[in-house]
Amino acid sequence: MQVLYFAWVRERIGVPREEVETSAVTVNDLVVELRAREERYDAAFADTSALRVALDQELAEFDAPLSGVREVAFFPPMTGG
């Protein structure tokens, strides 16, 4: 699946998007897999309460299932307006 990062999450991880091969069942499982990759991921996901997640461009919770999802995005709380 495509994993996208925005704002400081993108800066910390160093890429705006990447293809990730995963068998993670939920978003939380995917976060555990990503954190185990490298220090930059571990740092970006250290506090998921400071993050939001969207599944196929809809806001979701971290315990949401990833079944059928093609695009996962991680970002800080939004600051529009």
Binding site: F6, A7, A54, F75, P76, M78, T79, G80, G81
Partner: peptide, 13 residues
Amino acid sequence: MDYLKSRAPFWKK
């Protein structure tokens, strides 16, 4: 205004 401040995916730097 209330919704686009915290539910539309924009980030200001």
